[in-house]
């Protein structure tokens, strides 16, 4: 009896804790959303929560900010550019990383530990330090300003984290799987496609999301290797260009933030179902 009551109480407490945390997490985003629907003069003169004084007086809301952002010349092209950058900029590094992670986890070869350690160390290299030597090399290759240049760049910069995360997952798969495959006479390539890839879908899905987010939201790497001319600019740069160098047009920035996060969220929601089995599925044995 008492046990039941205690369990009910603790469940109640669980719900309260979760909801408080969720509300706290949501608050900034809600503020961002409300601000994006307010006219500029009001944004400057009162806080976004002021709308709650009369939440249903619709005169205080406007879609003008969104009209300005979406209607900006070149925004459609920028969306296309962002897709052209992000999709290969995600698929190429994750594919290469999956192969490497498999080799790091299950193949024996000299220098394996050293190379893996190097990969971890490279996680900390600040990208800004690589711009000058890499841009010089790209110039000699004659690929500056082309999309392959930025795919390569995002591949290089995204690999350490992707390899690191995937190696930990693939390394945790049960060894019996590989033993039996080996007895069946499967080559490493066959076990990669037949065992590793199918089992790693959840892990790959998470890595895809993170890499996609990072590439989609990137501004600096694109600016360096691709430039800021209208035929190649991504959404991030187009959004940054909405606002003058000294201007602080919050109403536009907030609307733009929602416009540019729409697609990453679609990617997240569509891949969310793969998370049921997790990124480190096999690692329970650790």
């Amino acid at each position: 009896m008492m046990d039941k009551l205690a369990s009910k109480l603790s469940r109640g407490l669980l719900h309260i804790v979760i909801i408080i945390l969720a509300v706290a997490w949501m608050l900034p985003t809600v503020g961002l959303l409300i601000t994006s629907f307010r006219p500029p003069a009001e944004v400057a003169h009162s806080g976004w929560w002021a709308v709650f004084e009369h939440p249903f007086s619709f005169a205080q809301y406007t879609v003008e900010n969104y009209v300005t952002v979406i209607g900006k010349v070149g925004m459609g092209r920028a969306f296309l550019n962002s897709l052209i950058i992000s999709i290969p900029g995600t698929i190429i590094p994750v594919t290469i990383a999956a192969f490497a992670a498999y080799a790091f986890a299950w193949m024996k070869f000299p220098g394996r530990q050293f190379l893996f350690l190097l990969t971890v160390a490279l996680l900390v290299v600040p990208l800004q330090m690589t711009f000058i030597p890499i841009l010089r090399a790209f110039t000699q290759l004659g690929i500056v300003g082309t999309f392959p240049a930025i795919w390569l760049a995002h591949t290089g910069y995204g690999l350490p984290l992707a390899i690191y995360l995937l190696r930990n997952f693939i390394g945790g798969l049960p060894s019996e799987l590989f033993d039996s495959a080996s007895i069946d006479g499967a080559s490493p390539l066959q076990s990669f496609f037949r065992i590793v890839l199918p089992l790693s879908v959840p892990a790959i899905a998470s890595v895809v999301i993170f890499q996609f987010l990072w590439v989609w939201n990137d501004l600096l790497v694109a600016l360096i290797y691709l430039g800021g001319t209208p035929d190649v600019v991504p959404v991030t740069l187009q959004v940054a260009n909405l606002v003058g160098s000294r201007g602080q047009d919050w109403h536009l920035l907030t609307a733009a933030a929602f416009v540019s996060m729409a697609l990453p969220l679609v990617v997240f929601f569509s891949l969310q179902r793969y998370f049921v089995r997790g990124i480190l599925a096999g690692s329970v044995k650790g």
Binding site: M26, T29, L32, T35, T236, M261
Partner: peptide, 18 residues
């Protein structure tokens, strides 16, 4: 989970603004 994840999808400019 989606609520907790959303901030990851917001660009830095948007996050700074809010």
């Amino acid at each position: 989970k989606s609520i907790i994840f959303i901030p990851m999808a917001i660009s830095m400019v948007g996050a700074a603004t809010i």
